[in-house]
């Protein structure tokens, strides 16, 4: 499952890049910092990335999940600190719905 999620995140980043200025485009890596100080994305782009990812998950896996929820904020370490932690967190959400 985690691999599928990683692929979908990769695809979501590519889709997001299509609407970004050249110098703002991001490249996929597990360590890519998504939100917070020195993050690769501005908050509006992060929010858009998450929406694209949710659409992809709904389209490919037939599951409707909300990624940015209260739980995401109450975790000690933000699940959005990197692409790797996002993949883990989303995999967890998907497994719960099975």
């Amino acid at each position: 499952m985690k691999e599928t999620v990683e692929e979908l995140i990769q695809e979501a980043i590519l889709e997001l890049n299509e609407q970004m200025e050249e110098d703002r485009k991001v490249s996929y890596s597990e360590d890519l910092k998504l939100i917070g100080v020195n993050a690769a994305l501005e908050s509006i782009s992060f929010v858009t990335l998450i929406a694209i990812l949710e659409d992809l998950i709904s389209d490919r896996l037939g599951k409707n999940i909300i990624i940015v929820n209260d739980r995401a904020f109450s975790q000690e370490r933000s699940p959005f600190r990197s692409v790797g932690s996002l993949a883990e967190y989303v995999t967890g959400l998907l497994l719960e719905t099975e």
């Binding site: 889709e15 299509e18 609407q19 970004m20 501005e42 509006i44 782009s45 929010v47 858009t48 929406a51 694209i52 659409d55």
Partner: peptide
């Protein structure tokens, strides 16, 4: 088509104005 919409908005609107969903 949603992808096309996103790209179209990306070309014509500032980031905060683009529909997220």
């Amino acid at each position: 088509f949603i992808k096309a919409l996103r790209n179209h908005c990306g070309e014509h609107l500032e980031k905060f104005k683009r529909p997220v969903r």
